[in-house]
């Protein structure tokens, strides 16, 4: 058993190279160990004090979110709230204030839960993960990163150091909506994120939709962009609802049956498209959509 607090990224990467596992806020790792889901790794390196990974930066092509940025930061950051609103919607729904204070975006992404809240927003916003190890760095598409429940394609010595997001087009909006039974400490029953860009005539120019908690990983509704393009938001939302239910492969568990999840994920997808389109048109809908419009975000 060993535990070290990394003072620099190089120190953290050196520890990972010899078998340590990273811990940030510990909100998944420690809770999982205490529940008996998975024992604590024998060797841990704490990365939560790496300030270089705790910033949201504007870059030439979009923004970079350091892996140690917390959900509390994401839900109020002006760049995220104004441009990448679906991600703020999701961050504001995670756990409770105490979870959001120490839970990080990098931790949420690398924990790879199929029910993670930030995953679907990141996917529709076109995010990529930056992985680094003592041997080098690489950029990974999220669809290649998540390989199954709790599984990623990252090597054990690789650390997710940042999430990069491309710039947002003009007249675009995004939203994340989840079905929940309670308003705090909840895990998505199902969830959906949408990103929409509007043409001058109010029809949809393009977009994307992704779903939480209906497959072994976060999944994108591949034909959502094509289904929405050229249509007014109401028609687009209806088409996306059907496509989302069709593509869902949910499980039945204590929280919901597969049939219920397959139906409700379509409802959530339609509401996400609706909210994203209204934001794209300039309507102010507060963060998170679930609270601004109602639980589960019905109008």
């Amino acid at each position: 058993m060993s535990f070290a607090i990394a003072g620099s990224l190089d120190e953290a990467l050196a520890a990972l190279a010899v078998g340590a596992r990273p811990i940030a806020g510990g909100t998944d790792l420690v809770v999982g160990a205490r529940q008996g889901k998975a024992p604590l790794p024998a060797s841990l390196v704490a990365i939560d004090r790496l300030d270089e990974l705790a910033h949201i930066e504007s870059r030439d092509r979009g923004i970079r979110i350091g892996a140690m940025v917390t959900h509390s930061q994401l839900m109020i950051d002006q760049m995220i709230v104004s441009g990448y609103t679906a991600l703020a919607d999701a961050a504001a729904l995670v756990g409770s204030p105490s979870t959001r204070n120490i839970g990080t975006l990098g931790g949420n992404v690398m924990n790879a839960s199929p029910a993670m809240d930030t995953g679907a927003p990141l996917m529709v916003l076109g995010a990529v993960a930056q992985l680094r190890s003592a041997r080098g760095s690489r950029t990974v598409e999220l669809s290649d990163l998540w390989t199954g429940p709790g599984q990623t394609s990252a090597e054990t010595e690789e650390l997710c150091v940042a999430i990069d997001l491309p710039p947002r087009p003009a007249r675009s909006g995004s939203a994340y909506v989840r079905l929940e039974y309670r308003r705090a400490m909840e895990i998505a029953i199902v969830g959906a994120a949408a990103s929409v860009t509007l043409a001058d005539d109010g029809t949809i120019l393009g977009g994307a939709v992704a779903l939480s908690a209906v497959a072994p990983t976060i999944i994108e509704v591949d034909d959502a962009g094509a289904l929405m393009t050229g249509h007014l938001p109401d028609a687009a939302a209806a088409a996306v609802a059907t496509a989302a239910s069709d593509v869902a492969r949910p499980i039945s568990d204590l929280r919901a049956s597969d049939t219920y999840r397959r139906h409700t994920v379509g409802v959530m997808a339609a509401r996400a498209v609706d909210a994203a389109a209204r934001r794209a048109a300039g309507e102010e809908i507060g963060v998170p959509v679930n609270r601004a419009i109602g639980v589960g975000a019905s109008r």
């Binding site: 607090i5 420690v30 529940q35 939560d48 105490s98 120490i102």
Partner: peptide
């Protein structure tokens, strides 16, 4: 003992944290 109930809430650098699900070693400093 599962980060759900908040009975264990303490402040860590002035922010509320569930102390049941936070490693003591990580609080050093």
């Amino acid at each position: 003992d599962d980060s759900e109930c908040g009975a264990c809430m303490v402040l860590l650098d002035d922010q509320p944290v569930n102390s049941c699900s936070y490693l003591a070693l990580q609080a050093e400093g």
